[in-house]
C-alpha cells in the first residue's frame, strides 16, 4: 500500500505540460512588453518582492530586460513544484490549487549552489 502510494506520488501521470505552458506564456508576455500579464503569472510572494521603492511590478520586470525564453527543453515536476528549462532561461514554478505560477525566472546555474535568479521570491 505504501509502495503503491510512493509510486503514485512519483507522478506516474505527472502533468508536465501545464507548468511548461505557464513558463512559455510568461516569456511570451515579457517579450511582447505585456508586463502586467507577466506579473499576473508570478506567485504573490515573487510579485510582491520584485519591485523596488516606488516601482510597480511591471516597471520592475521591464527594467530587468530578461533574455528571451525560447523553446522548452526539459520539464521536471516533483510534488507541487516544477523546474522548466527553456533554451534561454530556467524557471521555477509552484502549483497553487490548479494554477501554476512562476516563483523564479531569469535563472542561471551556480555550481553546487541555488540558481542565481533575476526574479525570485
Amino acid at each position: 500500500m505504501v509502495l503503491a502510494s510512493a509510486l503514485l506520488v512519483t507522478g506516474c501521470a505527472v502533468d508536465t505540460t501545464a507548468p511548461a505552458r505557464t513558463a512559455v506564456r510568461f516569456h511570451t508576455a515579457v517579450s511582447a512588453g505585456q508586463m502586467e500579464n507577466a506579473c499576473a503569472m508570478l506567485s504573490a510572494e515573487t510579485a510582491e518582492r520584485l519591485p523596488g521603492p516606488g516601482q510597480s511590478c511591471a516597471e520592475a520586470l521591464r527594467a530587468l530586460r530578461l533574455r528571451p525564453g525560447g523553446d522548452v527543453t526539459e520539464v521536471s515536476v516533483w510534488g507541487g513544484d516544477a523546474q522548466v528549462r527553456l533554451t534561454g532561461d530556467t524557471l521555477f514554478l509552484h502549483r497553487f490549487g490548479d494554477v501554476w505560477r512562476v516563483r523564479a525566472a531569469g535563472c542561471e546555474s551556480v555550481r553546487d549552489l541555488p540558481y542565481d535568479c533575476e526574479v525570485e521570491d
Partner: peptide, 20 residues
C-alpha cells in the same frame, strides 16, 4: 524501496523550492 521513491519526490520538491 517505498521510502526511497517517496523520499526522492519530497527531497526534489524541497530542492526546487530552494532553487536547486
Amino acid at each position: 524501496l517505498a521510502q526511497s521513491v517517496g523520499g526522492q519526490v519530497a527531497y526534489n520538491s524541497e530542492r526546487l523550492v530552494d532553487l536547486l
